[in-house]
Every structure is written in structure tokens, then in C-alpha cells.
Amino acid sequence: MSQPDFSHDGIRTARGKAFRYLFMLCALLSILTTVAIILTLLVDAVDFFAEISLVEFLTGTRWSPTNEPVAFGVLPLISGTLVITVGSALVALPIGLLTAIYLSEYASERRRAYLKPALEVLAGVPTVVYGYFALVYVTPALDTFLPLSTFNALSASIMVGIMIIPMVSSISEDAMSAVPDSLRQASYGLGATKFTVSTSVVVPAAVSGIFSSFILALSRAIGETMIVAIAAGQTPRLVDVTDPAGLFLNSIQTMTAAMVQIGTGDIVGQGEAYKSLFAVGLTLFVITFAMNLVSELVASRYREEYR
């Protein structure tokens, strides 16, 4: 693609070079952004960990950043985040996968042309709107037959789940469409039905892409902020896994919601609570970054597989 510059006109070359470096600077800005994110998080997080040990932070079971006696155990927040992640995964993974199968194996070209943009809309609705929906429509509707708290993990999980369906479906569908048609034809030739071909040939062949979509979607759920801040509550508690129902029916607090809560009061302070914001932020960043990286690496593998 790249073409050698045969021009010997000095000014031209100089100008061409100048633009080249200018554009390169723009591209490098993205690396600078990553560095800036890591540095901003690290500077205050390091300060924080000078006072609160990493072990205390990672294994503590009480989160009370401003209320005496203060405690900075992140486990309650991580457990809250896990509840939302598992809840939304239960909604989005099966639905997203089935959607991908439908779009790739069953839907006609015309139908796909309508369905795909419609699905993308799900990811395009601002999350604050989803949060509002969860609080004022979903929770009251579910409350008619479930003993729900006003702020609960259930409606928030459902909404987060709906929001991430298109992430699962579009990447999985890409992977399924990349499966060579010869594989399908071979199975049909053996008398297999579409169901069999879909579940026993296409899905296994596209499994790395599907896996990649799952990871990416879960990473989105972990980082989702507004839906949980509005609808899931602000009660940092270590969830009790022996009581799965109570886990979803009550108010919890995720890492992101805790950040919003501290953010509204202690935002420009210099105290421990302010610094804890960056420690939680760093934890969140490390988790999601690792997941995105894994997803990206797996995805690039499947892209190579069938190309």
C-alpha cells in the first residue's frame, strides 16, 4: 500500500515529512492517553497504598471510606460487581448467542438488514436512560410478585444484560459468518438439519470468537456505572452466596457505584477517601483491561483461522 516518494523537490519532501510526523503524533496520542490513565490512577493509588496495605485492601470485608471507623476492604464492592456481572451474563450470553445463530444461520438477507441495526440500538441508548428505566419501570413491575427492595441488583442486572446483548451477538455473528461454507455443506450433505449444523458445526468452529465476545461483554458489564448507580443501590455489603435470592433482591454497591458515591462528595479532597477512589479505579481498570486484552487476542486468533 505504501508508495515510495520519488519527488526530489526538497520543500515538498519536507512538508510531506512534517505531515507524517504530525499524523504520527496524533496516533501516539492514544498511547499517551493510556499512559496518562495509568499514571493518574497510580499516583494517587500509590499514596493510598502507603497508608492502607494492599493486603488489607484486597482481603478486607468492610468498605466504609468516610464513616468512622474507616475501612477500605474492596471485597464488598467486588462481590457487588460480581452479582451484577453474573446476573447480566445470565441474560445476555444465552440471548446474544442465540441471536448470533439466528442472524448468521437462519435470517434472510433482508431480515438481517433490519435486525442488526435494531440490535445496535440496544447498545446506543445512554446508560443513564437504562438506569432510569430500571428504577421506575422494571423494579415496580417485578415488585408486584417479588419481595424487592427499591434499589436492587435484579433490575440493574436485567438492564445491563439487555444493553450488552449486541456486543455478544455482533462479535459472535462475525465469527460464525467467518466459518467456511464448505463445513456447513459437508454436514448438510450427510443429512444434518440446520439445528445440528448450527450447534454441532458452526458454534464449535466459531468458539474462539464467541468466547471473545463473552469476555468483552462481561468487561462492559463490570465497568457499567450509571445503571447500577441509579438502580442497584449504595449499600456496600459482602454478598452472601448461600442466599442467591437475597443477593439479587436487595441493594448492593458495585465498584463503579462506590466511585460515583465518593465522587459526589469528596471529589477534589485530598483525604484517604479521595485516594481510595483511584485505588478502586485502578482495580477496575486492571480487571477490564486484562479482559479486553484477552478478548482482543482471542479474536485476532479466530480472524486468522479462517482467512
Binding site: 466504609s64 464513616n67 468512622e68 434499589f151 449504595q234 456496600p236 441493594s251 458515591q261 459526589t264 462528595g265
Partner: peptide, 10 residues
Amino acid sequence: NHRSDYYATE
């Protein structure tokens, strides 16, 4: 001390 296991909000 005020308890800390409550829904605290501004």
C-alpha cells in the same frame, strides 16, 4: 460511632 452498613447518600 454511627453505623456504616446503611444506604448512605447525598
